[in-house]
């Protein structure tokens, strides 16, 4: 198992090198001159030139690249031009925010979607099948920012049940000491239950919004995959051997049907983690997606490169986890490790 993990990680190295090169070139190729942007509209030509020199942008591309990779090797992602903060620190602060939100949304979604898909598959044409179809169609056809706004309108503005959608924690509480970066866990470790409740209540609306959106692919995939497995011959054999419906559905059908569902999960997760800029805007969530987009708009190279690189690493790790899960479920995969 360990050798397999090691091998997988080694295979990831070339692709990471590729990501470093491509992001570097792409950010350079983007229109817009960061030096001019930072000098401001009223700056003189000399002032712009001076800033350019300061940023090292007057050097040839190849030299810039080597300086960049050298910094990377020392764990330095560079400084953001807009905020002046080191990128590495910013990402370290913002990634847990995105991850906590995404994970919670995904867990809520899994808890609803998988049983829904299984029930829909075992009773095709029943009311639960129709319910599954309606929820998934509705969930996927409503954009997240819209569902988010609707939820905020009702639960904050009309009913007042949830706190103002302004970040991860109510202003009255201070952030817990960082252990995992997940406020839900950190507050518990700090035994600050008031802060825990505040963090949770801030999370509920955005997580629900994400869950509604990600419900559709997971439930759909579960239903389709269960239907395929239920009509397979080994399920017929299991039925013909008189096994109870619970055994047939759980031990025989469900485990086999999980494989494509896990793949879908990984895709949904990586999509939600990085691409949910609108969600982060609606809930003023200090996440990684909005950070990257703001940096991109202001031609701020370092955060964009840092973001892409972080996402690439996340993706590699996620795929590794999926592969290990596959191996746990399907003995046929283990051989090829």
């Amino acid at each position: 198992m360990l050798t397999m993990i090691g091998k997988r990680l080694m295979f990831a190295i070339p692709s990471l090198i590729g990501v470093v090169i491509v992001t570097f070139l792409l950010t350079r190729a983007l229109p817009g001159d960061p030096a001019a942007y930072f000098a401001g509209p009223a700056a003189t030509k000399e002032a712009v030139e001076q800033i350019r020199k300061k940023l090292g942008l007057d050097k040839p591309l190849i030299e810039q690249f080597f300086r960049y990779t050298n910094d990377l090797a020392h764990g330095d992602f560079g400084n953001s031009l807009t905020t002046g903060q080191p990128v590495a620190a910013e990402i370290r602060n913002r990634l847990p925010a995105s991850a906590e939100l995404t994970l919670l949304g995904l867990i809520v979604s899994i808890v609803i979607a998988i049983p829904l898909g299984v029930l829909a598959a075992t009773r095709p044409g029943s009311w639960i099948d129709h319910l599954c179809r309606i929820t998934t169609t509705a969930g996927v056809s409503l954009p997240v920012f819209f569902t988010g706004l609707v939820l905020v309108y009702f639960f904050y503005f009309r009913l007042g049940w949830s706190p103002a959608p302004l970040g991860r924690l109510d202003v009255f509480y201070s952030a817990p000491q960082t252990v995992t970066g997940f406020y839900l866990i950190d507050t518990l470790i700090a035994r600050d239950f008031e802060a825990f409740r505040s963090a949770l209540s801030q999370l509920i609306l955005p997580a629900t919004t994400l869950a509604i959106f990600s419900l559709a692919p997971i439930a759909r995939m579960t239903r389709a995959s269960m239907l395929a497995v239920l009509s397979s011959e080994f399920v017929r054999t299991a039925r013909a051997s008189g096994l109870s419906p619970a055994t047939v559905i759980v031990t025989y059908a469900f485990r086999n049907a999980m494989l494509p569902v896990i793949t879908t999960l990984s895709m949904v997760f990586s999509f939600l983690l990085g691409a949910n800029v609108l969600m982060e805007k609606v809930f003023a969530w200090p996440g990684i997606g909005s950070y990257a987009v703001e940096a991109l708009i202001s031609s701020d190279f370092a955060p964009v490169q840092g973001f892409v690189l972080t996402m690439a690493v996340m993706y590699v790790l996620l795929n590794l986890v999926i592969d290990i899960l596959y191996g746990v479920i399907d003995p046929r995969v283990r051989l090829e490790g």
Partner: peptide, 10 residues
């Protein structure tokens, strides 16, 4: 089909 008649992951 004996191969298909058995649960492949059990």
């Amino acid at each position: 089909n004996p191969r298909a008649a058995l649960n492949p992951i059990r």
